[in-house]
Amino acid sequence: MPLLDLQGLTMQYRTKMGPVHAVDDVSLAMEAGEALGLVGESGCGKTSVAMTLLRLLPDNAEIVGGQVWFQGVDLLSLSEQEMRRVRWGGISMVFQAAMNSLNPVYRVGDQIVEAIQEHQHLSDRQARARVAELFHLVGLDPKLMERYPHEYSGGMKQRAVIAMALACSPKLIIADEPTTALDVIVQDRILRRINEVRTQLNMSMMYISHDIAVIAEVSQRIGVMYAGKLVEVADTVTVFKRPAHPYTIALMSAFPSIQGEKRPLAQLPGEPPNLLAPPPGCRFHPRCPHASEVCTREEPRMEKVDPGHGVACWHPQGRGRD
């Protein structure tokens, strides 16, 4: 049984102009100990998927359908109280721009101690020892516990936030763009740390990013999203070497690099999709070089083109298929 299993998850934000279809029929499974990368265009619904499965949505959001199975329990059927327990011990999350969430007037160590004690009955001493251990784990000097957030650099704050997420040894950690604000050396440190910690604790991780180079370094499997839909899922090497969905192919070819020839940056033609009125049929068809009549009409379903390699496209590319 997979650790996490999303089945047909659908969520929309109600707005005055109509519903924003931010997550549409997303099905995805994760095994214990697995690292899954979630990539996609800005605004395609990556954060929304994470927020939906944790049920941390704003008031105007509405889960329209689907199930979230976590360790054999449907999270969408739990009470708020039970959900809170899951959010702490089962799945924890590092939010996008989480560095800003540290309270400037309390010492960083105290904030984590407080968070731990809210959910576990530990004495102050035990909790502090636990925090020191966590600081070690993410490569921070435990002496820094006594400092205030403004005395931390961005990279240090980010590591403190990750330490907080690890506090109760969750089964699954969701990291939403945890390193975008950091320089590459600090990023390298954190990614290596995360990988180590993950294998040490046999934790699963969902890593959300728009940066496929980072995703390549941390994940074993990749899910590619476009306009609220999951369009391709496969192991990392396959996605990079033999992508089948035209959007994935565009994503891979457009990546700027510091090595090799300076190619002109490939830009997807056309405009980013409007989630208030997504295109009919395949949501990618207005920008797709391979679009045919059927693409404009009917929505492609996620099909296996190889074991462990799913694609939602009428004309999957590569290896002379189609």
């Binding site: 490569g139 000097d141 650099s153 990279g155 240090m156 320089d183 590459v184 050396i185 600090v186 990023q187 390298d188 990614l191 290596r192 940066d211 496929i212 180079a213 980072v214 390549a216 370094e217 990392t236 090497v237 990079f240 070497k241 891979m252 990546f255 690099s257 510091i258 090595q259």
Partner: peptide, 23 residues
Amino acid sequence: LISAVPVPDPTVRRDPPDIRGDV
């Protein structure tokens, strides 16, 4: 800095950058 730039190729294993200690 340059050696720490992630490579968009999962088959490449990059060495950690040659730098000691923390900021």
